[in-house]
């Protein structure tokens, strides 16, 4: 009965978001049928487009995987954007400084990016656990510091010869480029890294003692402590792992997409991943299709702009409407269910 009720609310939420989305389409005078057709065609119409969709999918998967870890520990890691940046900076450092074969350089970029993101995440964690700074604001603050750092590097020590512009660094040497399939922009290696990371996170959380303790800490840290868990150590570990995985998104953005360091390296994917994870209700498996759908919308947005002259922000508006209606409606349903249950349990509060 519960599942049925949940399905009903879910269907209601989807309907609401469809109606609201269509309202916005009507508002900007978008032709409904063409828009819908282009949603599929824009993302999957040609091999190139499929490749590009997957290229966007990669950072979304990685950032979402990172957030699943921190959310499981009950943390709002808004600092994910900064962790992506830190990973990209670390990977760029490797790409600029290390000479060697592609295999060596890429391996070191991945390791370096993970460590960079992990350290940046750990900083948020230490501020929270030791400094009493809420992780939301510590995270936002460090996002800006990371952006400042990247801007400084791009126009300062890592600037192109004689040009101090925010356009980006010199492209990396070819040994630091993630290999691609001919004619496509997506790197299969990046896609593999994303899936390995996500599957590892799912494995970690569902199959290991560490993951179980992390989840227990996130759900009820007092009770988790009674089970002998040193809860603040687990919070820090969540930031290290989450930050590291976000750092990997920075690695693929720098090494597989831009092939250099640019100030907007995170592409806002960290923030978008927060929406994905909220929609997926923190479950790794659901992240896969939802992230793909969000990548699809992002790709379709280009085509809507190109072919129908619609604004590129339309896709973002639809994403926002979808997540907002589902989170509001499902939150309401859960609140009701919770209240009913607490009424049945009754007298614990007496």
């Amino acid at each position: 009965m519960n599942a049925l009720q949940q399905t009903k609310y879910f269907a209601g939420a989807i309907t609401i978001s469809l109606v609201v989305s269509i309202f916005f389409l009507w508002l900007v005078e978008a032709p409904l049928v063409d828009t819908a057709k282009l949603l599929v065609e824009g993302a999957f119409g040609t091999n190139q487009r499929i490749g590009d969709t997957f290229m966007i999918w990669v950072p979304l998967l990685l950032a979402s995987a990172s957030l699943v870890v921190t959310f499981s520990a009950g943390l709002w890691n808004i600092g994910v954007e900064g962790q992506i940046v830190a990973g990209a900076v670390a990977a760029s450092f490797v790409a600029r400084e290390v000479q060697g074969s592609t295999a060596v350089v890429l391996t070191l970029m991945v390791i370096g990016g993970f460590v960079g993101g992990a350290l940046w995440g750990l900083l948020v964690g230490v501020l929270r656990v030791r400094g009493g700074v809420n992780e939301i604001f510590g995270g936002i603050g460090l996002n800006f510091v990371a952006t400042g750092l990247i801007v400084y590097l791009v126009i300062g020590p890592w600037s192109r010869d004689g040009v101090a512009s925010t356009g980006g660094t010199e492209p990396f040497g070819p040994q630091a480029w993630f290999p691609t399939i001919d004619g496509l922009r997506v790197s299969p290696l990046a896609l593999i890294i994303a899936f390995v990371a996500l599957v590892s996170v799912m494995f970690l959380l569902s199959k290991t003692h560490f993951g179980l303790r992390l989840r227990a800490t996130g759900k009820n840290s007092l009770a988790a402590n009674r089970f002998g868990i040193a809860t603040s150590r687990y919070l820090l570990m969540a930031f290290i792992i989450g930050g590291g995985i976000a750092g990997l998104a920075g690695v693929t953005q720098a090494g597989a997409v831009y092939h250099r360091l640019v100030p907007s390296i995170s592409g806002g994917y960290g923030f978008l991943a927060i929406l994905i994870v909220l929609l997926a209700r923190f479950r790794g498996l659901w992240v896969i299709p939802i992230a793909l759908f969000f990548a699809t919308i992002a790709m379709a947005s280009f085509q809507w702009q190109l072919r129908l002259g619609l604004h590129s922000a339309l896709g973002g508006v639809i994403q926002g409407v979808l997540v907002l209606s589902i989170v509001l409606v499902m939150g309401y349903q859960e609140g009701r269910q919770h209240r009913e249950q607490s009424n049945i349990r009754g007298n614990t509060a007496l």
Binding site: A216, K219, R226
Partner: peptide, 18 residues
């Protein structure tokens, strides 16, 4: 409920936790 058990985790998960 507040201090002993973790709401949302199953009995199996509690056993694995312990």
């Amino acid at each position: 409920q507040r201090e002993g058990l973790v709401n949302g985790l199953s009995i199996t998960e509690h056993v694995a936790l312990s």
